[in-house]
Computed example of a mutant assay.
Amino acid sequence: MTRYVVIGGGIVGLAVARQLLLDQPDAEVTVVEKEERPGAHQTGHNSGVLHAGVYYPPGSLKARLCRAGVAQMIDFCEEHDVPYAITGKLIVATAAGQLGRLRALEERARGNGITVRMVTAHEARELEPHVACVGALHVPSTGIVDYGRVALALAGQIEKLGGQVRLGEQVTDIRSDTVVTTARELRYDTLINCAGLYSDRIAALAGVAPPARIIPFRGEYAQLKAHRTDLVRGLIYPVPDPRFPFLGVHLTRMIDGTVHAGPNAVLALAREGYRWSKIRPGELAATLTYGGFQRLARRHWKYGLGEVTRSLSRRRFAASVAQLVPELTRADLEPAGSGVRAQAINPDGSLVDDFLIVRTHRQVHVLNAPSPAATSSLAIARHIVREMAAA
């Protein structure tokens, strides 16, 4: 009987454990999660979007696994009674100078096999009556789901299939065949690291030098007050800047009917730094002294300064929202929490753009799995497990 230990009880780790049990019913599969509930970090703090796969270079892991993953996620939600909705999305150009980028995005989407349609400003307002734009890309297959609910359903299925999800246990050491936690020692034949914000540190603990460093970026959200939610029917996004992995402040009607605005993107002062006051000096020092981060900061300091300004100024944040829906003002917004993105950065200061999975003889390390990892999680799991079986 093969023994697997999966480190990290977010949606990717849980999906991997489930896939292992589906493919190998006799395997011993244990998920180790330091928090007291599954999906406590990136899984439970994102915008809940079922991404269609518009943004990713054709042929990349992100493109292939997002396309496969969204279909698998819908099937999973239907099988396990997890609410979801296919709302469609508008990616809007608010100025004529953005139309070229929008057309390039249309070409990329079609290259990924996604049905999209360029629409005029008038047609866009038929879909979203309050939107402001000079043109837009309509993506009808984009949807919304509560990934926290998905994580709970995955954890429940793992246990039904005979696996274990051990919560509240932090990994303290990794040996050649043993994971040591704060509660026990777990023997393994294969280790899978899905630790998200700490995935590079877990890799180093396991004796694997990570090729890139995780840098945490906080995304802060607001939400529309209840009497203004009728201004948004589905999802409204700006045309993204291709230099960055962040999609810009956007509007998302959530599965519960609330409408979230955001996120921005600022450096988090701790790996789990969900607010400015959460500072871990050691983690912050490690970020600031990393050559890759220093090169990134020198290259894009103006962009970073703009994001910090928007974080500290409710007026600036509201102005970004009003570019999409001009009727919205600062008075229409209220705080709605934040999330932290685990973004891998190479030593040369470039962002790792694709999913990054490093394999050794007895270990698999998922070292970059930001958005659309939640959408893609079931496909990522199948990819990892099938590649391990073929090795």
Rank of each mutant, 00 (worst) to 15 (best):
L90P: 02
H80Y: 12
I74D: 04
K89A: 07
Y56A: 03
A63I: 06
Q72G: 15
G59W: 03
S47F: 13
I74M: 10
A68F: 00
V82R: 09
D81N: 12
Y84G: 08
V82H: 09
P58S: 09
V54K: 08
G53R: 01
L50M: 11
R67P: 02
L90Q: 01
D75L: 11
I74K: 14
G59R: 08
A71V: 13
T87C: 14
V49Q: 10
K89D: 10
H80M: 00
G53H: 04
G59H: 11
V82C: 10
F76L: 08
L90N: 07
P83G: 06
P83Y: 02
C66Q: 06
R67L: 14
S60Q: 09
H51F: 04
V54A: 03
F76D: 02
Y55G: 02
G88Q: 09
C77N: 07
C77Y: 10
Y56I: 04
A68L: 14
D81Y: 01
S60L: 13
V70F: 09
V49T: 12
R67C: 10
P57I: 12
T87N: 12
A85V: 12
Y55V: 01
G59Q: 05
R64M: 08
V54L: 05
A52C: 08
M73H: 05
P57S: 12
P83R: 13
G88D: 04
G69C: 02
D81R: 14
K89R: 14
C77E: 10
L61G: 08
P83F: 06
M73P: 05
H51Q: 00
L50S: 05
V70R: 15
L61T: 11
H51T: 03
P57V: 14
V82N: 06
H51N: 00
T87I: 11
P83N: 01
R67E: 11
A71Y: 13
L90Y: 05
A71P: 02
D81L: 11
A63D: 04
E79V: 12
P57T: 14
H80R: 13
V54E: 01
V54C: 05
